[in-house]
Nucleic acid binder design. Structure first.
Lengths: 202, 202
DNA sequence: GTCTATACAAAGATAGAC
DNA sequence: GTCTATCTTTGTATAGAC
């Protein structure tokens, strides 16, 4: 997942969407003005409304695309019949470690969306068969029949994703640099599988 | 931590702050207008600025209070010399289970603040001796000397807090009711200590 | 000090010219 | 499809009554 660059020959609509993504990630919804988005794209602010109806709609689309990118690749992982639980956990960890270090702004969109419009994420999941009926759910049930598989999923995802939500706090309260916290997050990907395995062993 | 009710004889300033808290929780920062806050409080919108200088400042104060409430009670838990690790984990779980079920809107403020202004939360922690030097950090190090205590804290907090960030998604994707998800969250408080213990046992 | 009425500027949205 | 002018909403500031 590489950072998007706006091609010089892209359409106006694409320019605006990319400019919107940039500025929204940098300044958040409230801190962004449509005029600034237009400036970033080299156009007048009226065009933001012309193409996207409203600032809100544009934000919606940007968010929706971030969500789709965030979840898109996990379905093949959790639904793979040929991998065992440990391999799936490693797959999830590696994927999220990579994408969330490369696109730190993304986790903000995801956690906001999970709380503001959970139905949209739930729908995205259902369209991809979801987690409840995924192969990983069956494997989790086999490992720990005493605990609901979705409870275990919350544990696993919490351990993987929460550090990216709280990384700023930990970085500052430990008094370390941006690079050091990234190093910790990468180290984390190494030992997490073993910790999760220990947790799941009955 | 019971829901605040605005007493009829409270001051104008308190009325505005409570109205602001209500509307901000319901509609978020961008979705809230100062005029609506004033309506909710039964006053004219100019008073929001008179008492709080700006919408931003009011939001700041509301958020800061939510953060203080969220973290305030954990310091005595994690710094208690007389409890062992397992008891501390149970203390954290019980506290967060209680407060986050009773005030579901709080987790939104916390996760936003962790990402938007992590330095404020870090400062709040430092003022209370923080996590890195807390008794719990020492005990985590004794349990798993091979892994940085803060890494383990991220695991524990992730398992406890992440479900409240993602509850809406899980509720919908499992097709269950509000009450059912709350039941799951309460059940969770029962078995989490054992799972965490298993994870920490070397 | 508290509050009302009002003014003003910034920003989202829209109509109409080109 | 693009841009300018304009309208409306909303955050902010202030003058003046009490």
């Amino acid at each position: 997942m590489s950072k998007k660059v706006i091609p010089a020959d892209s359409t106006t609509e694409e320019k605006i969407k990319e400019a919107g993504r940039k500025v929204f990630i940098r300044k958040g919804y409230a801190g962004t003005t449509t005029r600034e988005i237009a400036d970033e794209a080299g156009l007048t602010h009226a065009l933001v409304n012309y193409y996207f109806r409203s600032k809100d709609k544009l934000f919606d689309i940007v968010t929706q695309e971030q969500v789709a990118a965030f979840f898109g690749k996990i379905y093949p992982i959790v639904n793979n019949e040929d991998t065992n639980l440990d391999e799936k956990v490693k797959g999830l960890i590696n994927y999220y470690t990579e994408i969330l270090i490369e696109e730190p702004g993304m986790v903000f969109f995801i956690s906001s969306e999970m709380q503001n419009r959970p139905e949209r994420i739930a729908k995205n999941m259902e369209d991809n068969q979801g987690l409840a009926k995924a192969v990983i759910a069956r494997q989790l049930h086999e490992a720990r029949p005493d605990i609901h598989p979705m409870q275990l999923m919350m544990c696993i995802l919490g351990m993987i994703i929460f550090p990216y939500i709280s990384r700023g706090v930990f970085q500052r309260s430990m008094g370390i640099s941006e690079n050091d916290i990234i190093k910790m997050l990468k180290e984390r990907a190494e030992f997490l599988p073993a910790l999760i395995k220990a947790m799941l062993s009955n």
